[in-house]
Design a protein around this nucleic acid. Structure first.
Lengths: 192, 192
DNA sequence: TTAATTATTGACATAAATGTCAATAAGACT
DNA sequence: AGTCTTATTGACATTTATGTCAATAATTAA
């Protein structure tokens, strides 16, 4: 008769938190908001749900931490895309790519559809866009500040819409893949 | 001692369904997806949750019916905005207004964030956009079909993004209310 | 080796949401 | 009036999600 003594894996608190948030991110992508219950996340992460509560306090705490992480990732991607030395047209394309990427669009959709419990900090994004405005304005030369704001506003809005409903809308308009892929360049070349 | 004999209100099935979906729509707007539980909807509608299940079969059935209704409303608004006799710039603004309106943007966000159980029919929207393409192309004269598709694609994407994150993004960019309000006209005058 | 910290967990408790069912009754029709 | 359809409901059952707690054990520090 075998006696099986189970051993526990003990991670640092940080390791556990990132493990959990990684699983939650994947589940959000795959199952939508319904995938963000602590029972399911814990099971998929291979831990007990009590452990999850220990690290995040509650189910809402986990979701808050996830939105924080996704926001941080979004800003990081924008920072990465941002380079003062590239021409504004390419800069616009990079911003487009960064915002349109599935996960970020999903974050914004979530924020828009969920009963927003806690208002979030947008100063990081605001600072970033401030720099973006300055650089673009300098690069475009004569354009007024308002003009630059409008341009970036348009690019950003289109990016978000693209990440959210781009493929569905392309279908409805009868556009093929090549056209959709050509869209970012077409847009930036038409509005700057 | 008073004896109170409760009387039931008996609606037609259609009346009950529309009553329930109206309440659900309001609750979606106010509380987000969490507001769409049959218990809460039934309570706010003044009926028992068993009645709600009777009419929609299940909780998911109610949500499916709601997305169907919202999609129908979206198409109806687009049809209303669509008038072959108005100049393309104003047409673009009408499409913008129809898509950017809160409820529709919320529908698209929901579709994007929820675990999409059932693929929905988009032929109605596709037909509508087909007519929109034809009319716009005719009005713009020399433009190629691809060009017209790109233009409408851009307007539609920006509209969706506007309905979803317009105010947040405007804040991040330091735009004031006047600028935001001027945006639709600015956009349509710059891309057509 | 010993002690201290704390991540981990199973068992339990609770709340909330969903679904089932048989009985009731409101309205339509004859 | 009587009959039929079916919308309506309360009570119950079930499932799921969330949260609590005391005990355990992995790791670190002394």
């Amino acid at each position: 008769m075998d006696i099986f003594l189970a051993t526990r894996r003990r991670r640092t608190a940080d390791e556990s938190r990132t493990l959990i948030l990684d699983v939650a991110t994947r589940r959000l992508r795959e199952y939508g908001l319904e995938g963000l219950n602590i029972t399911g996340v814990a099971e998929e992460a291979g831990i007990s749900h009590a452990t999850l509560i220990h690290h995040f306090g509650s189910s809402g705490g986990m979701r808050d931490a996830l939105t924080d992480k996704m926001t941080t990732d979004l800003v990081a991607d924008l920072v990465l895309a941002f380079d003062a030395h590239v021409p504004p047209a390419e800069l616009a394309q990079r911003v487009f790519a960064a915002l349109a990427e599935g996960g970020h669009a999903k974050l914004l959709a979530w924020r828009s559809i969920a009963g927003d419990s806690s208002p979030h900090d947008v100063t990081a994004v605001a600072n970033l866009f401030g720099k973006l405005l300055d650089t673009t304005q300098k690069a475009l030369g004569a354009e007024s500040r308002e003009q630059v704001q409008m341009i970036i506003y348009l690019v950003a809005l289109a990016s978000i819409g693209y990440g959210m409903a781009g493929s569905v809308l392309a279908d409805a308009l009868g556009m093929n893949t090549q056209q959709v892929e050509a869209f970012p360049e077409w847009m930036t070349s038409h509005i700057t």
